[in-house]
């Protein structure tokens, strides 16, 4: 075999000689391009989509979704899935808020920065613990990840509501959160939302972890071929376990932002974004079959979903209509992923 034959079109965005439309279709910027086209098309019907306020909304909706989706990506790389992420949002929102509430919470009277720090840790610890449970079940008992995380999803959604009824009189939400904590969700630094800074930090950290660290390399190796990884001395189970922990912790962090924004811990948090979380990652190009992921892709995916959502709302479509269309888009992304996988199998 000559070396010339070995250069392949696997990263076809770089492949010269293909027609422009095909290069675009196969490029990793396709989703970003589609977003632009969508916005341009929408602008003809609803010009509000170009307004600054609209984009502020989009950004606000996108940031926590992005953080959860980045966590999800770590699980998808090893060909797993975490459907419990939305219940983690709700559960850690309630438990976390209970820890930091000034209305008879355990931290009343402590210095503000300490309350905030402990609070964030508590949110993420709750998420990480659920993730650890998911990870232990899939790696130790070989339970299928989708069913494990489906049951933990149901369990912790229920637990969030139940705990709320135990902790509050009306059973709806836990308020009186410290002002410094609320700042995380609502505050601005240099005209930028503080939560955006958090998202940027998470994105950067995730990028470094995924693309530049030993852990990240191991994740990809497991996703591409777990057997080869095991024979090469990769601690497969341990690595997969941590992927689930990260997913849980990211959902916990997103719960911080949601909770701070709403100023209350509530068990109904994130009920509707289950599909968006998986969808953002898969639309961006993260494969459900493992071994393919990039933080930037997830950013594009989350942006696309949020923009589509906003555009449909501006069109005056009912919530149900938005759901139907978004579900369809996500299904389409999964189909494209499956077809790519099939082509790869042939190649």
């Amino acid at each position: 075999m000559t070396p010339a034959q070995t250069t392949r079109l696997d990263r076809p965005g770089l492949a010269p000689g293909l027609p422009l439309w095909r290069r675009l279709l196969l490029s990793e910027y396709l989703v970003l391009f589609l977003t632009v086209v969508y916005v341009a098309g929408m602008a003809l019907i609803v010009p509000e989509i170009l307004a600054a306020d609209t984009w502020r909304d989009i950004l606000a909706a996108m940031i926590p979704l992005l953080i959860v989706a980045i966590g999800q990506m770590f699980v998808l790389v090893v060909a797993g899935i975490d459907l419990s992420a939305t219940s983690v949002l709700a559960f850690s929102s309630v438990l976390g808020a209970a820890v930091i509430t000034m209305d008879g919470g355990p931290l009343v009277g402590m210095p503000a920065f300490l309350v905030v720090a402990v609070g964030i840790l508590a949110f993420m610890a709750v998420g990480g613990a659920v993730g650890a449970f998911n990870g232990a079940c899939t790696t130790r008992f070989n339970m299928p990840p989708f069913i494990v995380t489906l049951t933990t999803m149901m369990f912790f959604s229920g637990a969030a509501i139940w705990v709320t009824t135990l902790l509050t009189d009306d059973g709806s939400s836990i308020g009186s959160l410290p002002r410094e904590f609320v700042f995380i969700g609502q505050g601005r630094v240099f005209e930028l939302p503080f939560s955006l800074l958090i998202a940027l930090a998470v994105g950067l950290l995730a990028h470094v972890a995924l693309s530049h660290s030993l852990f990240g390399r191991w994740l990809f190796a497991i996703g591409i071929n777990p057997n080869a990884a095991a024979v090469s001395g990769v601690p497969v189970r341990r690595t997969m376990f941590w992927a689930y922990v990260i997913s849980g912790a990211c959902a916990g962090l997103a719960a911080v932002i949601y909770t701070a924004r709403l100023e209350t811990g509530t068990p109904v948090l994130g009920q509707r974004i289950l599909l968006d979380v998986v969808g953002a990652a898969v639309i961006g190009g993260v494969s459900l079959f493992g071994g393919k992921a990039k933080v930037l892709w997830v950013v594009f995916g989350a942006l696309f979903l949020t923009v589509v959502d906003k555009g449909l709302q501006l069109l005056g479509l009912s919530l149900a209509g938005v759901f139907a269309i978004k579900g369809g888009v996500i299904l389409l992304a999964a189909i494209v992923d499956a077809q790519r996988q099939r082509l790869k199998g042939r190649g």
Partner: peptide, 26 residues
């Protein structure tokens, strides 16, 4: 890893030897 590049395959078993310091960056 048939779907991975040559370099990644060659590196896989030795990765820990090339990951140092905080965060075990490669």
């Amino acid at each position: 890893m048939m779907d991975g590049p040559i370099a990644d395959n060659l590196a896989l078993p030795s990765l820990p030897n090339f990951a140092g310091g905080f965060g075990r960056l490669i």
